[in-house]
Design a protein around this nucleic acid. Sequence first.
RNA 1: GCCGGGAUAGCUCAGUCGGUAGAGCGACUGAUUCGUAAUCAGUAGGUCGCAGGUUCGAUUCCUGUUCCCGGCACCA
Length: 635
Amino acid sequence: MSIQITFPDGNVKSFDAPVTGLAIAQGISPGLAKKAAVIKVNGELWDLTRPIDRDASIAIVTRDKPEALEVIRHDAAHVLAQAVQELFPGTQITFGPATEVGFYYDFAREMPFTDADLETIEAKMREIVKRDLPITREVWDHDAAVRHFEAAGETYKAEWIREGIKVDEELTIYKQGPDWLDMCLGPHLPSTGKLGSAFKLIRVGGVYWRGDANNAQLQRIYGVAFATDDELKAYLKQVEEAEKRDHRKLAKQLDLFHQQEEAPGMVFWHPKGWAIWQAVEQYVRGVYRKSGYQEVRGPQIMDVSLWKKSGHWDNYQDNMFFTESEKRTYAVKPMNCPGHVQIYNAGLHSYRDLPIRYAEFGGCHRNEPSGALHGIMRVRAFTQDDGHIFCTAAQVEAEVTAFHRQAMQVYADFGFTDLSIKIALRPEKRLGTDDVWDRAEEALRAALRSAGVEWTELPGEGAFYGPKIEYHLKDSIGRAWQVGTMQVDFMMPERLGAEYVDEASQRQHPVMLHRAIVGSMERFIGILIEHHAGALPFWLSPVQAVVAPIVSDADGYATEVCELLKDAGLRADTDLRNEKINYKIREHAMHKIPVIIVVGRKEAEEKTVTLRYRGVEVQETVALADVVARLKALG
RNA sequence: GCCGGGAUAGCUCAGUCGGUAGAGCGACUGAUUCGUAAUCAGUAGGUCGCAGGUUCGAUUCCUGUUCCCGGCACCA
């Protein structure tokens, strides 16, 4: 029997018997064999040691390729698992995949791992790498695998094979050395030695078996892994830098806001933080006006009867705060929509009036689980740039399209271009007919399509009343947060009795679109802080300029300059402290003030100012008469 | 909410194998008026998160609790 192997360059070589990727690589050059991680066989990644027994086109994948990196990380997970089982007998293995930057493995063990264990485990991993155990692939019978894992006390693994793997599916076992094995799809490196040294365990954490909070809790160990030590080093450096951008840290340094025990999940905005808020709010208010919204304001608490009608009592009660007075129970609003419907319902509407667009900087309280709270990104009291559009079914697509364009412009104005867009589709538990859902989902797709953007779809993650578009931004350490959203709602208007009179004098329920661009003011400002590392653009900076005199003789002039800026609507301060100019510059530079205006005797005499821009070494001296225009040009 | 870790001066942190705490920065006072990233000297400042327990004695050990951090679950 002879097989034909086709190489990436089109060359064909024939072999008399099944041949492994490693042998092919060695045939080309020992150097290639050394660098090889896996082999691509007819487009599929295979182990280098797996015999190729039929004609195939192949490509050796060296360890510097992205596809190899995933294998390296996956291998690291398995070496981690072996290390843990060698160190802590009786610990059960479950799953251990590669992740975006590394890997993790979930273990079942009575005693949770501690940070101190990580060091020990990592050392054991390095030892296993040094042993250079061969990694071999075997195909096992389904029953045999179940029997093996049950006999070994590996109940999670056995359960997964029984329930998660079909009997006729190919079941592969990977052995590391003679004694240790795990069930795995592969592929893997030829031996543990190939893993190299560019990995590091970073944290432990509890997780639920199969991601279900009703199940047992497992212990997850996270690690990072790269092809080379330099890449690992660069990654760790990057993480260190990212941590400096943490909005919680910067808020303290820049005196923006604080949070305290008596108000968990809520924010005390300090003057500088609130100045940012005001800048964002004024900007968004302008967007409301330009895009046809009327700003309204609903009450903060309303009788529970209203929330029973809206469906929140049944579906959202756990997340709501309640309060009582004179034998009536009120709910603190977790959303603004029911309030807006009351405003809509206060008058009679004709189809000619639609679409009607209401907007509100709506303060909401949601009783979020304590473990979900995170700085100002996830809070219990927040303000949405909320809006509700009441329109006909025919108007939905145009409204969604217009919203999307506007939203993208807003993100760009704040400096964000890297957004991910998702459409959350019908969930299993839902209201309305399939036909209505088809139309609603298609309307969202059509709107995004016409805007020429890419999106991913999340089946089953829509709201019970309708599908939604979600706009996500990432924080400094890569966690994605939803900011904007556009939701199509066919249910709420009916439940709360919203109507309009159509062309035939018939009363109809309008469609309601729930939409937000920045989402939560708190979260958005948090992301802004991290995205700009605290150095906010001029128009958002809480203090845009500080006027710093060099000698006290110039104090009067400095005050005059500052007043001029304030009169022009700029946020400016003076620094008249008895300190050297070096000291003042250092301090304001660290506070990330966009412009430091230095005035000495010379400036006072000549009626000029010397401008020092954030992050720029050179200064420029301009006439006092020009300074406002110069600053305003900064945006 | 679940698992783990943490909480010491305004901030960043050190420390006490149980004998009630210390640095730097900041603040305050005084001197200094010095042209582009820290002038010098002095002073004040702490229920060691909160509540119990063990102990002659607890900031330290134990239990509970609150909040924070990481992970998971949750996130209309």
